[in-house]
Design a protein around this nucleic acid. Structure first.
Lengths: 109, 109
DNA sequence: TATATTAATCGTAATATTGCAATAAACAAA
DNA sequence: TTTGTTTATTGCAATATTACGATTAATATA
């Protein structure tokens, strides 16, 4: 089918998977790294640095914006994208809680 | 197109996105949580606990196996799935390095 | 106002993913 | 050997994702 049955999972499970989708594509990983590491996080620069079409980058930026990890500041005709630090921090906590879970004492493995 | 251009990204970027895909679906999050928290991580139990068809769960287990986060021990006709602790630990390091990156001093944001 | 620049959106095509029923494979037990 | 149990695989259908060209929208500049 290709349709995720979100309703049978917990809010936490859906939240983790939604957040993970943000960096489940190398272009979005690259975009996030560039925004962190560059001192010019203009959309057009990202298009040049990553080798994808402008519309494709714009689409990935939109997804990252929808998930809440970045926000865009309009500067004339350009848009400067920045990390939303509060949401990034919350995301880190959610993902880390999942990654750091321990096995039960009587776990069969 | 729908075809990821892996060759234009770094190994690290591809690695992060591949690992993130493991928990970019709520069923796989649920499976991993069950394996951690349950003392019977038999495939059949997962099918009952999560409300998806047996073939669907089996497919998700196969993906998690391919990524390397779990391994299956055959016990008679059943299979007991366990976390691959070394790979899980390595995955955690890779993801954490990405999540904990800091912005540059002269970052424009 | 007219033109250039930049980013977002639309339309389209192709591949990927999700899900299930049906079947096959592997093994245990009668 | 036959039967039952459990998991993997196959085949299929539907939705999702990725990517790009073309267009639109918004703004700056001549």
């Amino acid at each position: 089918m290709g349709l995720i049955k979100s309703e049978i999972f917990t809010d936490n499970q859906n939240k983790i998977s939604t957040l993970a989708k943000a960096f489940a594509h190398p272009a979005r990983v690259a975009i996030l790294q560039h925004i962190f590491q560059s001192n010019s996080c203009i959309c057009g620069d990202l298009v040049e640095e990553i080798g994808l079409a402008q519309s494709t980058i714009s689409q990935h930026l939109k997804e990252l914006k929808n998930i809440g990890l970045i926000k865009g500041n309009i500067e004339g005709t350009s848009v400067c994208y920045c990390i939303d630090k509060d949401n990034w921090s919350n995301m880190k906590n959610t993902i880390n809680e999942f990654l750091n879970q321990d096995a039960l004492e009587n776990n069969c493995c």
